[in-house]
Design a protein around this nucleic acid. Sequence first.
DNA 1: GCTTGACCTAAACTTAGCTTTAGGTTTTAT
DNA 2: ATAAAACCTAAAGCTAAGTTTAGGTCAAGC
Lengths: 147, 147
Amino acid sequence: MYTIGQISDMFKISISAIRYYDKEGLFPNIKRKNGIRQFDDNDLEALLVIECLKKSGMQIKEIKQFLIWCNEGNSTLPKRLKMFEDQKIKVLNQIQELENTLNLINFKCWYYSESVKQGTDEYVKKMPVTKMPTDIQIFYKKAHKLQ
Amino acid sequence: MYTIGQISDMFKISISAIRYYDKEGLFPNIKRKNGIRQFDDNDLEALLVIECLKKSGMQIKEIKQFLIWCNEGNSTLPKRLKMFEDQKIKVLNQIQELENTLNLINFKCWYYSESVKQGTDEYVKKMPVTKMPTDIQIFYKKAHKLQ
DNA sequence: GCTTGACCTAAACTTAGCTTTAGGTTTTAT
DNA sequence: ATAAAACCTAAAGCTAAGTTTAGGTCAAGC
């Protein structure tokens, strides 16, 4: 059994945030003694999943629904499966989007490191695609829909 | 030259959002005719970068700073380079975190697809690590700091 | 016995990034 | 010439995910 302060230290989540999660229904079965929350291993496990789902961009309302399903027993297993399958697709899309973003950032890193070397960006700005490094060319053509 | 409505269609960004970006200083040099905004190719280019930086999690205040630097000429080239280099690291970290999240989601997908097959999760819950599929084992050991 | 520290609640406040509303001007089409 | 469509501003409103504040309870150590 852990107090809210111990949980806060373990997970590096502020006490007020944990109370907020509880208020929003993320610990549907938490025990209390004299009004004081007592977190057990189930609650730790729940918090692990909560952190994961939050990082994947899921909202607290949706996470709450999942925890309600967990409490309803085997009849909700297909719903829980579908939730994770849907979330998997969302995370894969997020990774893809970040990789596209990374390509533009890499292009800008190259652009500015060349410009800094020369003290001006006027030559880099005018540089023909064929004179750029190969990996930069690939991005540049994609972004500008050339060739 | 484009009107705000055309920009909105091109970028699939709401008109009110574009006005908000302008109010926040993301188009420091935009032209007006009779009070009506006239977006030129520089503004299109800026909006491309704005979208990219937003997707990478950068706040509008910081993006504004970048656009101010762009207007200040060559003396700010090193600052702009550093900004993109820092942002690159942040994006790489975000991708790493999403991949960790994906591992837990994959574990849960496996867990629930087995449970759905059996109509209950009691056997999957008790399953020894050595009986899990190899890719699932790898995650499980990592997450539970076994072996 | 009293003070300190850890816990509690309810409610107000905060922040970012917009959207909505209300009222007004300009452009375009008929 | 006029009506509709597209533009404008300023200010208020919204949402999520907390944080802060104010006031109170409870257990432990001195």
